[in-house]
Amino acid sequence: MASSPDLLFSLRSNFYIGAYQAAINNSDVPGLSQEDAIERDSLVYRSYIAMGSNELVINEVDSSAPTALQAVKMLAVYLSGDKEGAKASIQEWLSDAAIANNPTLRLIAGIIYMHEQDYNEALKYTNAGGTMELFALNVQIFIKMHRSDYAEKQLKIMQQIDEDHTLTQLANAWLNLAVGGSKIQEAYLIFQDFSEKYQMSGKILNGKAVCCMHMGRFDEAEQLLIDALGKNTKDSETLANLVVCSLHLGKSPSRFFGQLKLSNPEHILVKRAAAAEDNFERAMQSVA
């Protein structure tokens, strides 16, 4: 029988690679310390959120729950549509010196402000790092800011702590994709290694597919993305990648784009398409 540390390690790994149902299914870890039990519960609730079950988290986490779980609940509240309410609660807790340094609270603040595309605000809470998840989120934020040099510094810190950590390998793959060129093949090999070591997840399939698209292997990318869609028909990143892949293959992306609009109307691809349509309409009216 696996020990509690091994079971918790497995739960973390499943969550990090996007195998959310596996993380939930294997969350019955006995004999945990209070700190580890809170981490387990945080990862389980975040898995439910990743699968779209925001209401379950909102209903189960009550006001007596630890700070980390309250923060996770606010992520569910935010993603359910009450963005201002969630941000107000997060800001109130961050102004409380007794809990402001809670790593999960800082992580959730960073995630919420990354959703807002307010990267400077996100970095206020994440830049000090302290956990592998915070360092990994910093890598993502700096990539979004087109500052791969800063992302690389964060990655080096992670490599010094644990080069083989799942998040270190993922962050390395993200940075390789951002840098491009010969680094794409290195990113592909990382995702390939994950697919051999862990349960195949939508996140891994998307990672491999994006690498394939960068390398011009669109037929292979399409099959990987279809496999990912089979795991979650509402996953917005899979649908967005299928839109792009379909265009490169000369196929109509309308079905995937329609699904994306329904599942995530706030997705940047949907917003860009809407802006382009508005610009086209204005241009047509000006010459009418």
Rank of each mutant, 00 (worst) to 15 (best):
M200N: 07
A122P: 05
F280K: 13
I111C: 07
N102S: 12
R272D: 15
D162M: 09
G216I: 09
N172P: 01
V179W: 09
S53M: 11
Y125K: 07
S254T: 07
Q34G: 00
G129L: 10
I38E: 15
K251E: 07
A128I: 08
K251H: 12
A88Q: 11
A288P: 01
A50P: 05
K183H: 13
I38C: 00
S254D: 15
A276F: 07
E277H: 10
V139E: 09
Y78K: 02
N264W: 00
W93S: 06
I108L: 12
A122M: 05
M74T: 03
M51D: 01
R255E: 10
Q91R: 12
Q199M: 08
L75K: 13
M132R: 07
K234W: 10
A128P: 02
V61N: 02
S148Q: 08
L205P: 11
Q199K: 13
M158P: 00
N101I: 00
T168L: 05
I58S: 00
A19S: 15
A283P: 02
T233P: 02
L177K: 12
L75H: 07
S252L: 07
K144G: 03
Y188D: 08
G129R: 14
Q223V: 07
Q223M: 10
S80I: 01
T131S: 15
L105I: 09
K208M: 13
V244C: 00
L105T: 01
L224P: 03
L170P: 04
E163A: 14
T131R: 09
G129A: 13
H115A: 05
R12I: 01
K83D: 02
A187P: 11
A68Q: 06
G207P: 11
A275H: 13
A97K: 13
E35L: 09
E60R: 14
G180Q: 08
Q70Y: 02
N127L: 14
E281S: 04
M74S: 03
Y16F: 12
G129D: 06
M74Q: 15
D149C: 07
T104V: 15
M213A: 11
V244A: 09
C211N: 03
A187V: 07
E163K: 11
V179A: 11
S201C: 07
N232L: 11
N176M: 12
I204H: 09
A88P: 02
H165I: 05
D162C: 06
A68C: 03
I38Y: 01
E220L: 07
I157H: 15
S246E: 00
K208Y: 02
D164W: 01
A2F: 14
S27K: 01
V44Y: 11
K83A: 05
V244W: 03
G181C: 03
L69K: 06
I108W: 08
D6I: 02
D6Y: 09
L105F: 08
P103Q: 12
E281T: 05
D82V: 06
E55G: 14
A100F: 09
E222Y: 08
L107Y: 15
F142R: 04
A109E: 13
G202I: 03
